[in-house]
Amino acid sequence: MRILVIHNFYQHAGGEDTVFRQEVEELEKEHDIKTLTFQNKKGWRGALQYLAYPWNIRATWKVKKIIKSFAPDIVHIHNLHYSSGPLLIRSAYQLGIPVIMTLHNFRLLCPSASLFCHGRIFTNSIYQDFPWTAVRLRVLDNSLTKTFFTAFTYWIHRKWGTWNKISKFIVLSQFSKSLFVESTLPIAEERFIVRPNSTDIIPTVRTAGSGFVYIGRLSQEKGIVPLLKAFSTLPFPLSIYGSGPQQNIVEDFAKHYKNIRYFGYQSKDLLTKAIKHAEALIVPSVCYEGMPMTIIEAYAQGIPVLASNIGILNKMVLPLYTGMHFNPYEEADIGRVVTQWEKLDKTTKRQIRENCVTEYKKHYTVKKNMDKLMDIYYEAIQQRKEKQ
């Protein structure tokens, strides 16, 4: 099969980039793959990219050119924000190529992309035709201009029918699917297909780990500050990996508390090792996550997860089966759960680690994931042929 994969890189690397690279690497083993990527820039170049967001003719021209030369059977889009934009979808459709899109976040519903605003879950946009409440609250980078322009971009393409030119939307969980289905987005339920993320790691079960680890973006919606405050009162070690707008806060805590160590942004291999040697992975997000790759990597290595009781985390992490839940807004509850975990006996911990590997094998292996992806491709291609 000939597959064109399109992805827009953010200024800071994230989980979507990891999924994009992993899928391309796997697809290349058996198929003819071409990638078309875009990169968000800073400064005046980034401002020009943003102005072109709703109608990026240059990105559209690139898509037309590569489709005509490569002649793909299908186009798979991962991210369109913001240097590429949704207009390219229409080009692929007009050239008769079925388009698949993975929804790694909730940007189709809200300019926040995370359904998070001012420290809390924010779902108003789901039920509004145009997300005026989100604009008023400046949910994107606390900017009225950026929030409105992003909202306008997705709204105008909703009115133009651009999203209805996508054959299938891949969502990462049933939880995500339910949010899209109950929203005002005029897309039939059957076009949303649940397909979780995956990772290719040889499953192992460790007998014991050392300390707790956080890996991810250092920002408000990830709940990093309540986590730091909780560990500032605990005797247990916490290692933090990542970068983001709250990095200075993390660095300050690391200077004042010996049990908190900050390692910055690191390579994928080093992060995999960090998870492998941990007592448990901690995911304290106060927003709706898509499907954290770190949890899947932890399960593959038999590492339990202590996570928020919010959204998909409440489904992925099963209390005392693959980990434990806490209220991410309450530092005392984070501390209580961490302490409770430490007090579990060795036999219970060993069983939970084995359960993690079982969950990985059952839901998150690359083999199952890629088989599901190919089924989605073939179905989309067949449906487009029938329409033509």
Rank of each mutant, 00 (worst) to 15 (best):
M1W: 08
F20R: 02
R21C: 12
E23G: 07
E26H: 10
E30P: 11
Q39T: 15
N40M: 12
K41F: 10
G43W: 06
L48N: 05
Q49Y: 07
L51C: 12
N56K: 02
I67L: 06
S69G: 07
F70S: 03
F70K: 00
A71V: 15
V75W: 04
G85L: 04
L88V: 02
L103W: 06
R107C: 00
L108T: 00
L109T: 05
S125V: 01
Q128N: 11
F148C: 06
R158A: 00
W163M: 01
K165E: 13
I170R: 12
L172E: 07
P186F: 11
I193Q: 13
R195I: 01
V205R: 00
R206Q: 14
F212H: 03
L218N: 01
K222I: 05
A230S: 11
D252G: 09
K255W: 05
R261P: 12
Y262E: 01
A274K: 00
K276Q: 14
A278C: 07
I282M: 02
P292Y: 05
L306H: 05
M316C: 09
N327Y: 00
V337M: 05
V338D: 03
T348Q: 15
E354A: 12
V357I: 06
E359A: 11
K361F: 08
K367T: 09
K372T: 13
L373K: 02
M374D: 11
Q383A: 15
R384C: 08
Q388N: 14
